[in-house]
């Protein structure tokens, strides 16, 4: 019965939707990322030129300001493209950093158990108990604001999620028979961990990571809003959202367009994440 069920699952796998997902995700993220990358060449002023005459100009009124202008008369389209640099860097680097640190710690804690596991997990609990804002204020107060410090702050506060997740998977995977089999023919522990356990624990990790990228883009804006983030003059999506907040009723375009940029990026990353997860899995299962 279980056999029949998995056969059917196999037959429905790798639908054309997956292919569409990959192409769409790649196009979304690729376009946004490329634009952000070459933005210094396109806009040498960094989207900082102020024109008070164009203050809060609505979209489609002038060819110079296709998506309108912000309260200081800066072009919103330019600032979205330029702002992608900060947001992309913060979102992706922090998620990558946290996933790497958390995964390594989770893998070793879960595989070796014992004292190291207990110590690391209590440390993780302490980390979870610390409010993020408190941690942010402390670190920024000591080291001063800056993009690199924001990224480190996010890594420090988020590795725990990954470590917990990975450790949970490892605890069940290490009892699986293929891991026992690898131990029985004498494979080194490090190889068992990276060859047999890690690939089987990747699925949920990728999902959590794509979700956290979006989260971190928004987090950067909260930090900037509190004055703990990047220089407020430097364009970033989160920063733009924060600035436009006061004008949300009278000038929707100030917030809606950067918001859309974040949404598109997150959508694209999620699609790529789903595609990646399914392609790493030889069964090609479509899981919810």
């Amino acid at each position: 019965m279980a056999n029949e069920h998995s056969q059917i699952e196999g037959q429905v796998k790798r639908s054309s939707f997956r292919q569409f997902e990959f192409v769409a995700g790649l196009m979304l993220c690729g376009t946004i990322g490329m634009l952000a990358l070459i933005s210094p060449l396109l806009f040498p002023d960094g989207g900082q030129s102020v024109n008070l005459l164009a203050r809060l100009m609505p979209p489609l009124q002038s060819s110079e300001y296709p998506l309108g202008a912000d309260p200081l008369g800066r072009d919103i389209l330019t600032r979205i493209i330029v702002g992608g640099r900060v947001s992309f860097t913060v979102g992706i680097l922090s998620a990558l950093g946290a996933v790497t640190l958390g995964t390594v710690i989770g893998l070793f804690a879960g595989y070796y158990r014992g004292f190291a596991d207990a110590l690391l997990m209590r440390f993780a609990d302490i980390q979870l108990a610390l409010p993020f804002i408190l941690l942010a204020i402390t670190i920024i107060a000591i080291f001063g604001p800056g993009l690199d410090r924001i990224i480190i702050l996010m890594i420090v506060s988020q590795w725990v999620q990954y470590a917990r997740l990975v450790r949970g998977s490892v605890l069940s995977l290490r009892e699986r028979e293929f891991v026992q089999a690898a131990r029985s023919y004498g494979l080194a522990n490090s190889k068992i961990i990276f060859r047999h356990i890690l690939p089987n624990a990747l699925g949920p990790l990728i999902i959590l990571m794509t979700l956290n990228v979006a989260n971190n883009i928004l987090l950067e804006s909260s930090l900037t809003f509190l004055g703990l983030g990047v220089d407020p003059r430097v364009a970033s999506w989160g920063g733009m959202l924060a600035e436009g907040r006061n004008y949300a009723q009278s000038a929707w375009w100030v917030t809606v367009f950067p918001g859309l940029a974040i949404m598109m990026t997150v959508l694209g990353l999620n699609m790529l994440g789903d595609w990646l997860r399914d392609n790493l899995d030889p069964l090609g299962r479509t899981r919810l």
Partner: peptide, 20 residues
């Protein structure tokens, strides 16, 4: 001895890594 002695497990579905 891990070479001279080999172990075959019960579950043929569980004892092969699905990703290899």
């Amino acid at each position: 001895f891990r070479r001279e002695i080999q172990y075959i497990f019960q579950d043929p579905y569980g004892s092969l890594n699905p990703r290899l």
